[in-house]
Every structure is written in C-alpha cells, then in structure tokens.
Simulated assay, not measured.
Amino acid sequence: MNEIKESLSGQDPILSAFQSAKSNQVEEEQLGLFENEGKEDIEKTNIQTDNTHIEKVYKGYDGTEYSEVEWLSPAINNGPTRKEIEDWKAKYSGLIYFVPFDGDVFIFRPLERPEYREVVSNTTLSALDREEVFTEKCVIYPDDFSLEKIKKGRAGIASLLAEMIMEKSGFVAQTAPIKL
C-alpha cells in the first residue's frame, strides 16, 4: 500500500486520489469487508473524482440500475419500494403485476399449477370461495392482504383480481387459435 502511495506522489492529484481509493477498495475486498448478502444486488460503487461522495448503485432483476434513493423509495404511489419489487421479481421470475383500485394498490403474481390443482380439488369450495383463495395466494402487496380483508372489503375486488390472476396464469388465450 505504501509503495502505491509513494509512486503516486508525482502524478495528477485527481488520478492519485482515484487510484488510492481504488487500492483501498481492493484491500477491503481482500479482507472480506464487501460481501453481497444475496437479495440486495449492489452492482457497483461510483466514486466521484473529488473523493467526497460515494454513491451505491443497485441493479434490478432486468439489469436496470437504481440509485440508493430510488431503491429505497416507493416505486408506486401508496405502494412498495423498488427494492421490494425487485425482490419479488427475482422470487417469481419477473412475473409480478400491478393493479390500482381507487387509491388502493395491489401487486400479484401468477398462480402455479400445483396451487391451482390444490384449490380445484377441494370440492367443498364454491366458485366464489375459489376466487378468494386464488386471490389470497397470489396477492403479494399489500403485505397484510388476507381472506378476512377480502370478506370485509369491496365485493368486486376479489373477483376482479382473481380474473386478472387467472389471465396472467395462462387460463385466458392471448390469441385465437389459427387453423393450419
């Protein structure tokens, strides 16, 4: 480390500061101080040439980069943060959907085949009960969404969400069949 500092003394001060910061980063990485915990994708750290500001850049599921402010701020009015959304995208292969209803925000994922089979095989459930179960299984935001809330909320929300969930789960054809 001292060798690097000594060799930098005759160089441009901005370049020296950058190289010094870079060598410190390399040393810290070797000591294991920069470990990625998994869910939070910290892609890189940008260091300004004046060496006074360090900005973390987070990488989303699709590779889009976000500043720390963007990452920790709500991505949707009255909704979850960008970090939460990107975590869900990673968990559900990018297949999450947003639906607003009069100021309420709902985010859901598609229904998986085993979940569908489980619900449909329960012959004690009516069609409306199935809608509620599908909705409860697939709505990931708000966090406290439950059958209790569905039953106490507006009557059509569960049905509309269930219809959208079924569509995004592959139960509605995107195009008409084509005769060959």
Rank of each mutant, 00 (worst) to 15 (best):
F18L: 15
H53Q: 13
F34V: 13
E86T: 04
M166Y: 04
E118S: 14
E43D: 13
H53M: 10
S9L: 14
L33V: 02
E35M: 11
Y66K: 05
Y58P: 07
L160K: 12
E27D: 11
A158W: 04
E148I: 08
A75W: 00
E40R: 09
G103S: 09
I42D: 03
P142F: 02
S67N: 09
W71S: 02
E115A: 13
E28I: 01
D41V: 14
G60E: 03
D129R: 04
E37A: 08
S7G: 06
D129G: 08
P13R: 09
P100K: 07
L160Y: 08
R154K: 15
I96M: 11
E37P: 06
F171S: 02
E115L: 12
L128W: 02
A162V: 07
F34R: 13
N24Y: 07
I4S: 03
L125E: 03
G103M: 06
L8E: 06
L111T: 02
T49L: 14
S23E: 15
F134H: 04
L72R: 04
A158F: 05
E68C: 01
D41M: 09
E163T: 13
D129C: 03
D104A: 11
H53P: 00
D102T: 05
S20A: 10
K59G: 05
F18W: 03
Q30W: 04
R154D: 12
